[in-house]
Amino acid sequence: MTAVISISGLHKFFGPTHALDGLDLTVEEGEVHGFLGPNGSGKTTTLRILLGLLRADSGTARLLGGDPWHDATELHRRLAYVPGDVMLWPSLTGGEIIDLLGRMRGGLNIRRRDELLERFELDTRKKGRSYSKGNRQKVALIAALASNVELLLLDEPTAGLDPLMDAIFREYITEERHNGRTVLLSSHILAEVEALCNRVTIIREGRVVESGSLAELRHLTRTSIKAVLARPAPGLDGLPGVYDLQSDGSRVRFEVDTDQLNAVLAHLTSVGIKDLISQPPTLEELFMLHYRGRLKGGEEEGKNTKESR
C-alpha cells in the first residue's frame, strides 16, 4: 500500500486566523478515508490545499506522488473533486456542466454517466440557476463519479441530498471501495462515515485529534454494559474505568473504558452473569467526546453520550 495523500505539519493562516495548526493526514491507496470535523475545523481548507487552490504556509503535502501546488494540472487529471458548496453557471444546463467538467478532467465514462443520471433521477435539461441545492450537489457528484480517475475528493457531498439519494450515494461509494478507488470523504455525518470508511481522521481547530481505523478508535472509548447478575455485585463502582453505575438489585448498567473491559468482565463473571448486553461505542460518541475536548473522566459527558443515542 502506498500513500495517496500524505500531509504532515501543515499550517495555514488567513490573516490572524490559524486555520490549520500542524495538520497530519495519511490516506492509503484503495481506502475510503473519513475526514471528520465540525464546521470551521479546517476540512475544506485542507482539501483546497490538496487541490493547489491555496498555498500552505508551512509543512508538506504530497498528493498522488506529486506536489499539489506545482504539479496541480497533471495531478488534477487523476482526481475528481466535489466541493461542499456546489455553484453552477446559471445559463448552462446540468448536462452541459457534467460533460464539460468531465472533459476538462480528462475523460468521462458516458455509459456510467447515463447510469448515474438514471439512478440519481436528475433532469439534465434544466439551467444551472433553477436547480435546488440537492440537485446542484447531484450534478457535481455525477460529474465526479463518472470520471475516469484514481482519487475522489468529496467535501460533505451529501449535504442537501434526500435520504433516498443518500442511500444511492452510499451504494456507489461502497462500489468504488471494492473497485479500489481511493476516496477522501469529508463529512460531519457520522453514520455516513461509519458506514463507508475504513479509516477515519478526526480534526478540530486545524489539528488532528484522532486518526486510525474504526476498530482502533473504538479502543479509546467506553463500552456500555447492561447486565443481570446472579446477585448484587459489591465493589463494582470501585473498579478503575467504570462510570455512571446504576444498580437495581442484581441489575446493573454502567459505562466502562474499553481498555478496562477485561478486568471488569472478570469481576462480573466472579459474581455470576445471567444476562449481558454490551454495546460498542458509536462514532457519534467518539465525536462528541473529542469535541468537548475531553477523552476520559468527567461525569457529565457520560450522561451526554447516553442522551445522544
Partner: peptide, 23 residues
C-alpha cells in the same frame, strides 16, 4: 418560464475557452 436546454454538452464545449465563449 425558463426554457429547458440541451441534456448534453455539444462536442465543442470542452475547455476554458469554449466555456468563456458560452458565458
Amino acid at each position: 418560464r425558463p426554457r429547458l436546454g440541451p441534456a448534453a454538452a455539444p462536442p465543442w464545449l470542452r475547455g476554458p475557452m469554449s466555456l468563456a465563449w458560452r458565458l
